[in-house]
Design a protein around this nucleic acid. Structure first.
Lengths: 191, 191
DNA sequence: CCAATCGCTTTACAAAGTAAAGTGCCGGGA
DNA sequence: TCCCGGCACTTTACTTTGTAAAGCGATTGG
């Protein structure tokens, strides 16, 4: 009994699954949802509006996954690894959403809702890192640099993995355990 | 006196500069190059073909910049920083090309030319890292993990920078010196 | 009971992707 | 010299897509 905008966003997932990320069409999304071909435009204004709403929901999901990772354990070190794994899982399980995360030019970047959702995800990472540093880890390092370094690493690793370059060196391995292992090495190197 | 395909790829740059990455149109590229609206399709087959050729040229350029960074100094540590800086400069100076680097779904990923160009860029990084490790740096670390970690970090850092998230924490600073500083910290942490 | 509003659809049109046929030019053989 | 085949594009034509605008039936407040 979900409402129509939600059904339309679900239809985006279905369309990406069937036709790929660049096969997403405002018209197709409408008809996929069982509505007219202008339904998506009616609700979201235009194509960037549709993508913005879709991306906002995607950030909300990954942000929630990161928050869950932080809340599930008292050990910040474990939480960092879990949050990274959540990000990786998100990229693999919802490749549609993840691919759109990288297509900001198709969205209205200045939408407040989108900002809020992005900041939610980023704030979850910050919180975990601050807790980890409070345990004495990397105590003498600049916190802003620490945050940037770990973000950049995790995001870059996942992206290079799904877009191909890391497939060859880690042939046959799986993303999540590999990321956990390499990230753990990085964390201990930074200590 | 450049040939027509080259002029068309230059026209892609001009179109992106004028209309943004999503304003690139096969027809517009043709007319921008002073040709008919089907000229680009004629030479590159279709839109993915055009993007593939454009992306191949972009990878060739960034690969050459990385090779130059490696060749310009005997100090591998310096070469690593220079290569990272070259990547950052590329992202800033050719935002058009960099934005397409992230839009692989618009390209024909399986094109051999594109593979070759990508591998050229990656191989340049590998070579520098191997030289650096030969100096004793991080000698006991798995070379594949080292490569993945530094790639992921540099790529992720630049991407988060240009797409927004790092703008707030590093407000008012510039990408290249910031990346050099944070990357140098990472290198010494990994040592 | 009725009209305004809601939630969508229908209609309409311009821009863009792309297939296919056309056109002028240039070089090489009879 | 003439012709003819191919090269380098252009012209034409058709379909899909984005999007504006008007329409239309069902609810709902007065």
């Amino acid at each position: 009994m979900s409402d129509t905008p939600t059904r339309l966003l679900d239809a985006v997932d279905a369309v990406i699954a069937e036709h790929g990320p660049s096969g997403v069409t405002v018209r197709r999304v409408g008809t996929q949802a069982g509505l007219s071909h202008t339904a998506a435009a009616h609700y979201f204004g235009d194509k960037p509006g549709l993508f913005t709403a879709y991306l906002t929901r995607a950030y909300d999901r990954v942000g929630a996954a990161i928050e869950d990772a932080g809340a599930a354990t008292d050990d910040p070190h474990q939480a960092m690894l879990d949050a990274a794994a959540a990000y990786a899982r998100f990229a693999l399980q919802e490749p549609s959403a993840f691919s759109v995360l990288q297509r900001l030019e198709l969205t209205r970047v200045d939408t407040p809702e989108l900002w809020r959702a992005r900041e939610r995800a980023y704030f979850g990472i910050d919180a975990i890192l601050l807790r980890q540093q409070a345990t004495g880890w990397a105590a003498d390092r600049n916190i802003a640099d620490l945050i940037a370094t770990t973000w950049a690493f995790v995001h870059g690793f996942v992206e290079l993995w799904v877009s191909g370059p890391l497939a060859a060196p880690y042939d046959g391995q799986e993303l999540e355990p590999t990321l956990r292992r390499v990230f753990a090495d990085l964390i201990s190197a930074l200590a």
